[in-house]
Design a protein around this nucleic acid. Structure first.
Length: 749
DNA sequence: CGGTGTGAGCTTTTT
DNA sequence: GCTCACACCG
């Protein structure tokens, strides 16, 4: 069979990375430098040219998407048999796999919401005020501790102040509860494996023998526990290949430690370093803009991306007055670009809207719906996070793992079956009196009716019968059929079918989708409820399924890492939003925001538009936002459209302070008129750019202007210089006003 | 017991 | 402006 691994298609450093032999290797791979290709080629090369056994190779990624892509490509290069043997997966998936091999008893993986509920239970049981320290906060701290490989006992020892002592108490109780429920949280998946390695050296030794080659993707985003896991697995041959880009480290808030990549050579003194600096993705202008932003960070690895791609057109900046106008602008640009005017006709799927926070998606959804443009949202409210889905999954979880009382609590009275708070209290009483589980207590009650009210007894007996009936079916029915039985027998489907209006209908629809997902999962060869649950627990979002079809994509900057699009909109380019105000509290917060901006810019292949809104609805009131500093870090020569204020200042147009140098919405529409002409920016912007004489800055008598509050008017006079410059304006509606240019939000018309 | 209404708090990013 | 928790009422 002829090899599909054609090394001549690689550039020199790529090829060196693929052909690297023994010993540690650090690949510093800039955005768009063909990283995934190098990693997959290397895996294939090791197997084919170096005769490494496929099962002796482990490749770790950060996301399911990356793992899926890698599997697919290795599959293509080596064929199914070999590819299947390579351990490819996310940290969490691979750790789960090891846990299952090493401890066969079933356990449930709790998601964030489950964990939060559990923490609340702990708080209540410990009589802690739930407002002093919120469950979210405690959860975050426990998660961070686990990322640092600090268990509940160590945490208690380290706890030095009020808050940490409080968290320590909850952490202990929380771990007890997880244990009794036979459950783990996300952090445990990795932590438990590390603990297993440390307590059972022979288990670790087995894996160290097995994995001759380990490859880790996105190494810059590795946290301490992930590092600990990898570090333990690397054997004396040190055949560890890590790939990453310190400029794209964007998960420090989740414990990612960029030092892992920065200090790789200290960690592994034999390490070879290969830099992939040729970018195959973006235009020169886009790369220049990206570079200009990220170079403002310190402590970076020395490297600079370059490309043989054309210069391309300038980035375009539009400043809207509101988030609604911002969205309309973006959608209109999408319409124009996909309407065939832009050279080759762009598809909707070529367009992506990137924002900082999930909450920003709404106006874009509204605008897209108005134009009847199909779109998909990555992240945000996930399919598996929906109430009806979680309810049904809780039935499954409880059936698989009867110790899981959190799931039991969720389903026991959903739909209502007479097992409310009162009844549950009685059941708990019986449970603690006879040291039984909740379900055990219910079973006992039905056998020997204690002093339990008749009504409670009957309801409990009915529930016990239901569960036993489902358990009997679980082993004989195939997955989708069984899922159907569950929603039917429990009355859960009926509950929503009887709910009037759209809510019921959409819940029923989602339940159908879940059954369809189970059917699809069965195709993978696994037909077990357990397998289905595990897969869902590790699945991040529902997006990958319906990514086909021609639709616009909406997602956060974080979700966009690793992706590329011909046309990228970076929206919400405002101080406070991006960089996010909360991020600035954190140490190095601004640097991380800047890297995030770098990630955003480098997603674009051909064209990048940046937008922001001068006012935005926040918690119900309209607030003013100034322009993102990142806009100002992009050189003026890379930027068309509206001119960010600082660039105006650079051009010594001091008097323009406070004026949003924007053009009106209508003016922007010709930016990409065919053929796309960079010069075709607003006349106003050109005017400002050309004009560096203070007296001729545009604010002279006779000019028409618009004020955010008073509407349109005409300048009739001007006094003062610089900061103190005042203009007198005759407004069409509001009459004559004098105002300081510095403060007045004036728009030239 | 369960449904509906009200107020507080909320938004950073996610495997 | 939206969501979730809790209180109150039928």
């Amino acid at each position: 069979m002829p090899s599909k691994i054609d090394l001549s298609t690689l550039n020199q450093p790529q090829r060196e990375a693929v052909e690297h032999g023994e010993g540690p290797l650090l690949i510093l791979a800039g955005a768009g430098s063909g990283k995934t290709r190098v990693v997959t080629f290397r895996i294939a090369y090791l197997i084919e040219a170096r005769q490494v056994a496929p099962e002796a190779i482990m490749a770790v990624t950060f996301t399911n998407k990356a793992a899926g892509e890698m599997k697919e490509r290795v599959n293509f290069l080596l064929g199914k048999e070999a590819a299947k043997k390579v351990w490819i997966g996310t940290f969490h998936a691979l750790c789960l796999r090891m846990l299952k091999i090493e401890s066969p008893e079933p356990f449930t993986i709790y998601d964030e919401e489950d964990c939060k509920r559990l923490i609340k239970e702990c708080q209540r049981e410990l009589n802690l005020d739930e407002k002093t320290l919120k469950a979210d906060q405690i959860g975050y701290r426990i998660e961070s501790a686990k990322n640092e490989l600090i268990d509940e006992n160590q945490y208690a020892e380290l706890a030095s102040d009020f808050t940490t002592r409080l968290v320590a108490k909850v952490y202990k109780r929380y771990q007890q509860k997880l244990a009794t429920n036979h459950a783990v949280d996300f952090g445990d998946l990795i932590f438990k494996v590390v603990q297993l390695f440390d307590r059972n050296p022979e288990v670790l030794a087995k894996y160290r023998r097995t994995f001759q080659y380990i490859l880790v993707d996105e190494y810059q985003d590795i946290n301490h526990s992930q590092y600990g896991w990898v570090r333990r697995l690397v054997n004396d041959a040190e055949n560890l290949t890590v790939v990453g880009d310190d400029d794209q480290s964007i998960y420090q808030f989740r414990g990612a430690d960029v030092r892992n990549i920065l200090e790789f050579e200290r960690d592994f003194p034999r390490a070879r370093v290969i830099k992939l600096e040729q970018n195959y993705r973006s235009t020169q202008t886009i790369l220049e803009a990206a570079w200009s932003v990220v170079k403002n960070n310190s402590g970076r690895k020395e490297k600079k991306l370059w490309t043989e791609n054309p210069t391309g057109e300038p980035l375009f900046y539009f400043r809207a007055e509101s988030e609604a106008e911002e969205a309309s602008f973006v959608v209109r640009e999408i319409l124009r670009t996909t309407g065939g005017r832009y050279g080759k006709r762009a598809r909707l799927a070529d367009c992506v809207v990137l924002y900082r926070t999930n909450a920003q998606s709404r106006p874009f959804e509204d605008a897209l719906r108005r134009e009847r443009l199909p779109y998909r949202i990555v992240g945000g409210m996930k399919f598996y996070d929906r109430m009806e889905i979680k309810d049904v999954l809780s039935y499954l979880k409880f059936l698989v793992n009867p110790a899981d009382e959190l799931s039991l609590g969720r389903i026991i009275n959903t739909p209502p079956r007479g097992l409310g708070d009162g009844a549950l209290g009685k059941i708990r009483e019986v449970a603690s009196r006879f040291e039984l589980s909740m379900f055990g207590a219910m079973e006992r009650m039905t056998l020997s009716p204690e002093e339990v009210p008749e009504r409670v007894l009957r309801s409990a007996a009915e529930f016990v019968r239901l569960i036993h009936a489902l358990l009997a079916r679980m082993d004989v029915e195939d997955l989708p059929t069984f899922l159907t039985s569950v929603v039917m027998e429990t009355g859960y489907l009926g509950m929503w079918q009887n709910t009037p209006h759209e809510e019921g209908a959409s819940r029923v629809e989602n339940l159908n989708e879940l059954i369809a997902a189970a059917d699809e999962f069965r195709q993978t060869g696994d037909n077990t409820v357990k397998g289905f649950l595990d897969q869902i627990a590790l699945a991040a979002s529902w997006d990958e399924q319906d990514s086909d079809g021609d639709q616009v994509t909406l997602m956060t900057f974080h979700s966009a890492k690793g992706l590329e699009f011909p046309l990228v909109f970076m929206v919400g380019m405002e101080e406070g939003l991006f960089p996010h105000a909360n991020a600035m509290q954190a140490e190095n917060g601004l640097s991380e925001e800047r890297r995030l901006c770098y990630v955003g810019i480098t997603r674009a292949r051909e064209r990048l538009l940046l937008t922001g809104a001068s006012t935005r609805l926040s918690f119900g009131n309209r607030v003013y936002n100034s322009e993102s500093r990142f806009l100002l870090e992009i050189p003026a020569r890379c930027l068309a459209g509206a001119t960010p204020l600082a660039h105006q200042r650079e051009l010594k147009v001091e008097a323009m302070k406070g004026l949003w140098g924007g053009k009106s919405y209508g003016g922007a529409k010709d930016v990409f008129a065919d053929p796309p002409a960079p010069e075709d920016v607003s006349q106003e912007v050109k005017h400002v750019l050309a004009d560096d004489e203070p007296g001729e800055d545009g604010l002279r008598a006779g000019r028409k202007v618009r004020h955010s509050k008073f509407g349109t008017g005409t300048i009739i006079g001007r006094t003062g210089e610089g900061e103190n410059m005042k203009v007198e304006i005759a407004f069409n509606r509001a009459g004559r006003k004098q105002m300081l240019v510095r403060f007045a939000a004036l728009e030239l018309l």
